[in-house]
Amino acid sequence: MTVTLVIGAAASGKSAYAESLCLGHDGPRVYLATMEPFGEEGDRRIARHRA
């Protein structure tokens, strides 16, 4: 199994890039995203990623 870690600054496109990597591979996939929710904007970003 290959493990890829995507890191970078906040709001730099990490999630979109990581999701494109996941969708481009067959087999089992695990996608883990972490973020400290700060205020309403943080809550909206997390909700958008979960959707």
Rank of each mutant, 00 (worst) to 15 (best):
V3D: 09
T2W: 05
T2M: 12
R29S: 09
G39D: 05
G39L: 13
L5K: 14
G13P: 00
H49N: 09
R50G: 05
A51V: 04
A18H: 01
R48G: 03
K14R: 01
P37K: 02
C22D: 06
F38T: 10
A33L: 15
K14G: 03
Y31M: 06
G24P: 03
A11E: 07
A18T: 13
P28C: 06
V3Y: 06
A9H: 03
R48C: 10
G8F: 06
M35L: 04
G39E: 10
A33H: 07
T34H: 08
S20L: 11
A10G: 13
I46K: 02
G39I: 02
F38I: 06
S12W: 07
S12M: 12
Y31K: 01
E40T: 12
L32V: 08
I46W: 02
R29E: 12
A16M: 12
A18D: 03
D43P: 01
E40V: 08
L32A: 09
H49E: 04
D43V: 13
G24I: 06
P37W: 00
L23S: 09
A16F: 04
A47T: 07
I7M: 09
C22Q: 13
H25W: 04
A11R: 09
R50L: 14
T2H: 05
D26L: 06
T34A: 11
L32G: 06
F38N: 15
S15T: 15
A47P: 01
A33R: 10
F38V: 12
C22N: 05
G27T: 11
R45G: 01
C22E: 08
V30P: 02
A11N: 07
C22T: 09
F38W: 12
S15R: 12
S15A: 10
D43H: 07
R48W: 10
Y17T: 14
P28A: 14
R45H: 14
H49V: 15
A11V: 05
T34W: 10
G8M: 09
Y17E: 11
D26T: 07
P28W: 06
A18N: 01
V30K: 11
E36I: 09
L32N: 08
A51R: 13
R50N: 07
